[in-house]
Structure formats: structure tokens, C-alpha cells
Nucleic acid binder design. Structure first.
Lengths: 218, 218
DNA sequence: GTAATATTCTAATAATCGTTAGAATATACG
DNA sequence: CGTATATTCTAACGATTATTAGAATATTAC
């Protein structure tokens, strides 16, 4: 048995995962899927690509076993094949944020200093939310909220916030979150709330970051 | 400001990391570098590739900021740019082991069921090693041992084990480890020890796995 | 059954990547 | 200064990949 050939085989297998996460669009699809299962069309719309292209990328992800497909009536729904895949996405993005100056600069320019939480702050946020000292709102589409959300968070989808803004208190801190650090929904929500006199801020975390930090979802 | 273009830019940056880890040889180089810094030639020899090719791959890793180069006299030494890079390698390999049946099969066929440790077993191994109930040996080259090793582990490089076997006790369990689950040095060491009547077994962990589990190195 | 819809497969193109060989660069040593 | 050594740069190739369009498949609704 050739030691070299054996090793080559092992690294080639791992590289299958690497190849799967080497395309920007596939990474975007993974992040969207980290919010819950979606149809090919929903994924294509969300990632702003053609359905055919989405299908091709999903095929690659499926071949690398990062996602699984399931037919649901006329539609085919894709979902991540495990929590570890979502954690891998968080890991990749974190390494990129840590080492790629270009990404840091881009994010600083775009997002107004999103609040990054450490283990301590996360715990403290839960207790404040439990006591009702802050109101945590999940501004993602309600299906994603239903699929899992931060403890004590209320669903307040970005599309409904205009009509439902009255449900929120003006005398408490409001903490908004969405899909993660790359998602712009919480920033929009916070901008809208601030305009209307609410004390709102956003956090960088989404449910994938929360899970990757070994914290429970509701 | 175009939301779509912004997003594309962010995912493209992360994909730079993904592209860097999409080649088997680059993954192998990363794993070797996770054991400590090495020259281009050492890396090329270790990965069984031409120096020119190693240089080209290292250039890609450097462009993705996963490694940094430093000139040391006539040689250029490369090292990982952070512990998180080593953790990313462990993460990628773990996802591959978890989801790719082909890899599982390949590993089962090659390695005789390496012992995989969880958090509990790792802690228990440290206490046993501290008490001297087991002897943990690090069979990697001594430079890698010097760069960081498991607590209470003794250095016993594979190349020296033949001469130094008398240093080991026959009445205690011997636990061998090397670079990680893909490394064959501990398997060779254990086979040799068993042949000579020692009670030896190997564990899948290497220092990168240990670090990724948030355990301290010595 | 047929029509409509969602998705995948096939084919084709341009762009990118891995690998190799030869030339060029940078440092150390005499 | 000139030579030896280590590494990188350049150029070239064949192989792979992303993307697009058109054909094919599978399910639902009628």
C-alpha cells in the first residue's frame, strides 16, 4: 500500500468540501440555507441569480454533501445537511473577517459598526431579554423565525415593521438581529426605528453565529 | 449604494478563503504548517511535491492571508497566520469526515480504528498522564514537539523509537499521537511497540485538534 | 390523458487553475 | 566581487469551472 497515494486520497476528499465553499454564490446559498430550508426558486431570488445557475450550484453543494434535497410536492426543498455545515460557514467568514483587511474595510464602510458579541455579552443579552429590560426583535421573514430564533426574541419582519412599529416600546432598548453580519435587514430596521424615536441598535449575530457559539435557539 | 454589489463583494472576500482551501495540496500544506513553521523545501518534501509547486501554492495561501512568510537567512519560513487557521483546517476535515462516506470508508480501511476523543476523554487522559498511569508519547519530529505538544507528553520521534524503545515502560499503557487523524506516524509507532510486547494504542488527536477543542498545549 | 410548473440535464463558451520548465531574484559565503 | 543556494516570477499547457441557453424530466392540476 502506497502511503503517498493514500494521503492524496484523504486530502482530495477534504478538498471536495473546500471546492464547494470556494464560490461566492455557493457561500451565499449556504448562508441563506443556514436560516432554514428553501426551494430552488427562493434561493435563486434571494441570491439574485438565475434558477438554472442556482440549481447548478446546489448540485455542487449536494455532491459535497453539505446540503440535502427533498421533494415537497412540485418544489424541491434544500437544507443544510447538519449544524456543523452552518458552523463551517461561520468559521470561514470569521477567518475572512479576521485576516482579510479588504473585508474589514468593506464592512466598516457599509455597516455602521455592528455590535459584535462575545460569550459574556451573549449571556447578558439573554438575561436582559428574559427580564424584559430589552426587546430583542428578529427582523427576518417569519418562516425563518419559526425555524429557530434567539431566546426571548420577538418576530418583527422587516416588511411588516412599518405597520407594526406601535407594538414596540419607546422606553426600552430594542436590539435587532437578522441573518448575520453580512445581512442588511437589521440595519434597515434600526434606521427606521431610530427615525421614529425608538432606542434601537443592532447586533452582528444571527442564528448561525448563536449556534456556533453553542448557545441554544428557541 | 447598490445592495447587490455590496453583498457580492462580501461573499467574494470570504470565497478567497474558500478558494485557498479548495486544493488538496494546499490543505496538506496547511496541516503541516499547523505543526509549526517550515521552510519551502521542508514543506515540498513533506507534501511530496516540487519546490516550485509548493512555492506557487504557498503564494495562494499567502494571498488569502492564511500563512505568513518570513525570511530567515537563506531560507524562507512559512507559518500559519493564526490559531484560527489551524482550527479552520480541523473544522473542514471534521465536516468532511462527518459527511463524506468515501472518506469514512477510506479511513476505516487504512487506519485500524483510531481512538477519537471527546472533551471528557481528553480531560481524563490528561489526569492519567499527570499521575503517570499512562505514558503519552509524541512521535512527531522533535522540532514539532518543541513547538507545542500535549500536556505531559514525552517526545519520542518515530525515527528514534527503534533505539529508544527501552526508555518506555512495559507495564503501563502507552498512548501515541502525531499530527492528527490523517497522519500515519502514530500508527507505525504503535505497530512497532506492539510487536515488541508493549501495551500501546494511538489516538486520532494531534495538536491542532487539541487546540481547536480549547485545551492548552505545553 | 394533457397542460402547466419546477427543476435538472446537456452542450457550449470564456475564464480560471494546477502543473511544469526556464529565467530571474535575493541572500550567504568565500 | 563572484559563486552557490533558496525561492519566486514568467510563460505555457491542458484540465476544470462558472455561466448561459435549450432540451428533458418529474410532479401537480385539470
Amino acid at each position: 500500500m502506497d502511503k503517498r497515494k493514500t494521503k492524496d486520497l484523504l486530502y482530495e476528499e477534504v478538498a471536495r468540501i473546500g471546492k464547494a465553499v470556494s464560490s461566492p454564490k455557493r457561500l451565499e446559498l449556504l448562508e441563506i440555507l443556514a436560516q432554514g430550508e428553501k426551494t430552488v426558486e427562493a434561493l435563486a431570488v434571494e441570491a439574485s441569480i438565475d434558477i438554472k445557475l442556482a440549481s447548478a450550484h446546489l448540485k455542487v453543494l449536494k455532491a459535497a454533501r453539505l446540503v440535502v434535497a427533498e421533494r415537497d410536492g412540485r418544489f424541491i426543498a434544500y437544507r443544510l445537511s447538519g449544524e456543523d455545515v452552518s458552523a463551517l460557514w461561520v468559521n470561514l467568514r470569521t477567518v475572512a473577517e479576521e485576516h482579510l483587511v479588504e473585508l474589514k474595510v468593506a464592512m466598516d464602510g457599509i455597516f455602521s459598526a455592528p455590535e459584535k458579541l462575545d460569550a459574556e455579552t451573549r449571556r447578558s443579552l439573554i438575561s436582559k431579554a428574559r427580564r424584559g429590560d430589552v426587546v430583542v426583535i428578529d427582523v427576518r421573514p417569519s418562516a425563518e423565525y419559526a425555524n429557530g430564533h434567539l431566546p426571548f426574541a420577538r418576530s418583527m419582519p422587516l416588511g411588516e415593521i412599518r405597520q407594526r412599529i406601535k407594538e414596540l416600546p419607546t422606553d426600552k432598548d430594542i436590539v435587532a438581529y437578522c441573518r448575520g453580519p453580512f445581512c442588511m435587514m437589521s440595519a434597515e430596521a434600526v434606521a427606521f426605528l431610530k427615525e421614529h424615536g425608538y432606542r434601537a441598535r443592532k447586533i452582528a449575530d444571527g442564528t448561525p453565529e448563536w449556534q456556533a457559539a453553542d448557545l441554544p435557539l428557541a
